[in-house]
Amino acid sequence: MMRHLISAADLTRDDAVLILDTAEEMARVADRPIKKLPTLRGRTVVNLFFEDSTRTRISFEAAEKRLSADVINFTAKGSSVSKGESLKDTAQTLEAMGVDAVVIRHGASGAPYTLANSGWIDAAVINAGDGTHQHPTQALLDAFTMRRRLVGRDEGLGQDLAGRRITLVGDVLHSRVARSNVDLLHTLGAEVTLVAPPTLLPVGMDNWPCEVSYDLDRVLAKSDAVMMLRVQRERMNAAFFPTEREYARRYGLDGERMAKMPEHAIVMHPGPMVRGMEITAEVADSDRCTAIEQVANGVSIRMAVLYLLLGGNEPAVTHARTEESK
């Protein structure tokens, strides 16, 4: 395993399958009366959140606590700039406190990469979402959910998603979830199609390993999973689309559209959902929608990532602080 998890693009197929398989083991812990493993006892993990995200933070926190790590939550509202303290000073402060891993959420694309490569800190860095760049644990939990539903819980072990047809719908331009998923799903052998109005697709994506369509209805019948991305209402004011109604009509998933999907196909959403915008309540509440499962799976995936980066089977690659790096 690698030392940091910055981008889904950094994972090989075998890395990714190992994480998914490990997450299955972790999921079994959740079925026990005492949902706790001693693996990270005595290790300190800090959740460094420069951006509000209660869902992601508590998911990491649950994962860390189930692995018996000591958890510090550091919520710095707003950017480092508005706060007055630089990312560098924050990092060095944490380093001085002797943390073993930093889970970072930051509004600036590349901040986790900079943290991991700047020499400011020696801890393992896990990207919990950076700007519009990457959110690798989200992509992993999505892949985990797909593998469970489309391949099977036990049958899926050791398997990737070869040949599965996955459709992502919505605001690709501003989505770190979309970027991470395209990278990881491609690595796992899936065929990815992105569906969005042209305004919400980035310029310069011609080489991405996926198909692009502007027409949701044409791809639904050929999808094993349809992932709806959150669309912020404010985008309307920047002329990305004319009205909420028109967006919902052309790119929203309602019952009628869901009926065009194959029987076995699932509907996914990274949350939080904007009901009535990208997804109707009827679809969101149907048993084909995996949004709640994704939340549960998120804890298992984050446990697996923390375990493999910090306490995994090879202690040699874990975080060992040397004298000269202090």
Binding site: S109, G110, D130, G131, T132, H133, Q134, R176, R179, P202, V203, G204, M205, D206, N207, W208
Partner: peptide, 17 residues
Amino acid sequence: QMNEGVVSAELGLGGWP
């Protein structure tokens, strides 16, 4: 934040077309 093109699309940095 940077030139709008292949690299900005990947890095998720705001494009300067």
